[in-house]
Structures are given as C-alpha cells and as structure tokens.
Design a protein around this nucleic acid. Structure first.
Lengths: 225, 225
DNA sequence: CGACAGTATGTTGTTGACAATCTATGAAAG
DNA sequence: CTTTCATAGATTGTCAACAACATACTGTCG
C-alpha cells in the first residue's frame, strides 16, 4: 500500500495522482490509452474511491479526459494544447510577476539564487529532467511570492503540462539549459528591482521566446479518437 | 431524488453541487458553516459518494474549504479574496478578449446584442439577481468565443464567486444596471472591431472600474476560524 | 489554580460488493 | 447494404461497515 518512494503521508487519492502523473510523464501510459478504474485500483492496491478522486484531479490538470460512462483516457496533446497552455501561462505569469516583484522576501531571493546557481552548474550537459525541474522550481518561487492562492491553483492545474512541454523542448534543443540560465538570471534581476511594469515586460519577453521554440516541435495537429 | 427544478439529467454530484451552490448564494448556508457529508447526504437523499465529489468541486471553485479530517466549511470571503478574484479575472479576461475579438462569429454577436437589449430593457429598477445573470451571460459569450478550453475552466472556477461579488455590488450600488449597459455596449463595440490590442485595453478599463466599486464594500478583512 | 497526558467522541477516509445506467459492438432483419 | 435490436462491457451510483485521524473532554500531577 505504500511502495516506498512516492507519498508517505498523503491521502490515497494524492498518492494515486502522483503515480499516474509519473507514468504519463515517463511515457508508460501513452496518449489515448484507456484507464479503467478497476484496473488502476487493483494495480495500485487501493479501492475505486481514491482512484475516482485522482482521475477527477488529473482531469482538472488536463492530463486525462473523462467521458461519461466511457472512462478516462490519457490526453492526446495537440498543437492547440501547446498554444492554450502557453497563452494561459503567459497571462497568469505576468500577474504573478507583477505581484511577486513587490513582495519578494529575502528568503525568496535566496531560493532563486540557489536555483540559478544549480542551473549554472549544470549548464554543460544535463539530463532534461533536471533542467525541467530547475525551470519549474524557479517559477514556483514566483508563484509563491505572488501570495495569491487562486493564481497558485491555476498554476498547479497547468504545471505538469508545462513540465511535459519543457521536457520535449529540452530534448529537441539540447543547448537550452545554457540559454535557460541566462534568461532566468535576467528575470531575477528585474524582479528584485521592485518595478511591476518592468517585471511584466520581462516575463512577457521570457514567455514569447519560450513559445517560439515550442511552436517548432512536431505534435499531432488534431485528435484521432 | 429529483426535487423538481434543479438538474434533471446530470450526475448526482452535479446536482448536489447545484443545490449547495444555490444555498450558499442565497445565504441559507452561511460563511464558516460546517458541512457534514452525512448530513448533506441524508438531506439530499443521496449517498456520501456524490456528496464528496460535489464538495471537491465546490472547493475548486473556492466556495467551500476542505480541511483533512475536519470537513468542509463554507468559505469566508475576505477583502483579500475580492482582490484575488478580481486580479485573476482581469488577467484571464484580457486574454479572452484578445482571442474573442478575432474569433467572434455572427452567432456570438447576435447573442451579445440579445443580452445588451435585455440589459437596456431592465435598466430602470431590476432585481440584482437578474443584473448579475446578464452580466455573467455577456462574459460567458466572451469566453466561449475565445475558444480556449483551459481558459474556460479557470473562468468556471471563479465564476460563482464573481457572481457573488457582483451581487453584493449591485445591492450596494442600485444605479449600476444602467452603468452596466453602457459599459458592456462599449465592450461589444470594441470587440466587434477585431483589434486585439484595443480589446485588451477596453477590458482592462472595464475591470478597473469594476474593482474600484468593489473595494469600497465592507467585507471581513481577516478570517476568524 | 494551571499544564499536561490520556481517553472519548465524532467526522472524514477507505473499502468491497451490489444495483442501475449507459455505450458500443455485433448480429439479425428489412 | 443499411437499420434496428439485443447483448456485453464498462462506468456510475449506492450502501454498510471499518479504520484513521483531529478535536474536546477528563482527570491527574505539579
């Protein structure tokens, strides 16, 4: 019931969410795959209750799609999904930056610098997973500093898809970790200056560059149900 | 099981969501009140399963707060919540407007005009509920035209709280329905011109004015457990 | 009299089995 | 070959009972 290494003290639903999210991320569960509640429950050694709850959460994250009386299916991400996730993220991240820049605590700055240092150290050749982890960690600090519960919730709802896209990007553009460090360092500099307008502009620029690279990746342009 | 007038053919969870949401909106369930799954299940004549699901949905909408092993409590909305809902709404509505203005179909415009006409007709003395309904309906069209599933989901997650705030506003500023018609008419005009930048600016203005009025309302400034 | 530990109570969290409902598949009829 | 219908499979909804947990209460000790 607690296979050593995922979530020791959380609800079973959260545990199930973590497992499924991981399996989707690492490709064990492939896009379009049919997830049966009974199967999942048996495989994870929990009952259907937590599984249902977990699937509902994953649906709100866009990771799976639930069709009534049909079941849950791993989402097939199309070019439209890339666009949606990106535009939504840009919209909320600008707000996060505006707020964070006037709320950044010393602890937040320290944390940002810690992450930046890690980015720099791994600039050479680094596993895409690690680059994604650091990238997300940086922006997590932003959302934390923004002190906005609903904003954090929206971020959480697209976070794993952002992670997926970042991963794809890093695999296709192996030089990105270097660029990443520079860009995030710029962001940190602007953010620490406390000017909301400047922060907004900097984030807009950051997002635009990010999207340009993603748009060039090949993804299914339509769903094939 | 189907008390005539709420949700005939939906899942039981959706039905329960509707009932609780209504009761919160009309004040039958007061902020801070403790919602017991067993009680709700008995009162609505459903089992605890759908009730749990409904409470989870309501939590994602910010209507209730769930604390582990403590239960669900009707949210106590503070000044900070007003600010959060407003800033988040402003952020996503700008995006919605940018997209909608280049995607508005004839049907969308017709629908907007229908709503505007209703607003004008009821400008005199109108029930606050009706004014809120029309206000939301107008913006629903926007989000629909934006053609952005994730954006719609975020909107859905704050929609009922927006409704609550609009209601409070309309009760405290009885002249608002008139202003509302004018402002929305302006929005419609700009949106139909297909200029994303102009649309963005117009919505920003719309939101700013809306917030100014809300900020003057008296709401608890802090939570008292 | 106040602080603390242990217990009692109530609520949520979880489970497994069953009934009801719906979708999709494939066979039979026109 | 198309349409209709029946069946199989899956999910949703239901239920009763137990486990885990948080809080409140109680009694003891300082």
């Amino acid at each position: 019931m607690n296979p050593l290494g995922t979530a020791p003290r959380a609800t079973l639903a959260e545990y199930v969410v973590g497992v499924i999210r991981d399996e989707i991320a690492r490709g064990e569960l492939r896009p379009g795959e049919h997830l049966r509640e009974t199967e999942l429950a048996a495989a994870l050694d929990v009952s259907r209750g937590p599984v249902r709850e977990a699937l509902a959460i994953l649906e709100s994250e866009g990771q799976v799609e639930i069709r009534r009386h049909r079941g849950a299916f791993v989402s097939v991400l199309t070019q439209k999904d890339v666009e949606e996730v990106h535009t939504l993220r840009a919209a909320i991240e600008v707000l996060a930056a505006e707020r964070a820049t006037v709320r950044l605590s010393k602890a937040h700055l320290t944390e940002l610098d810690r992450i930046l240092a890690a980015m720099k150290n791994t600039s050479g050749a680094v596993a895409p997973e690690e680059a994604v982890r650091l990238d997300l960690a940086f922006h997590d600090v932003l959302y934390d500093a923004a002190d906005h519960a609903r904003l954090r919730r929206v971020w959480a709802s697209i976070r794993s898809q952002v992670a997926f896209f970042l991963h794809v990007r890093n695999v296709n553009f192996p030089d990105f970790p270097t660029v990443g460090h520079v860009e995030h360092l710029e962001l940190r500099t602007v953010l620490s200056q406390g000017d909301p307008v400047a922060a907004r502009v900097a984030v807009e620029k950051h997002m635009t560059g990010s999207f340009a690279r993603l748009s060039r990746l090949e993804l299914p342009s339509d769903v094939a149900g």
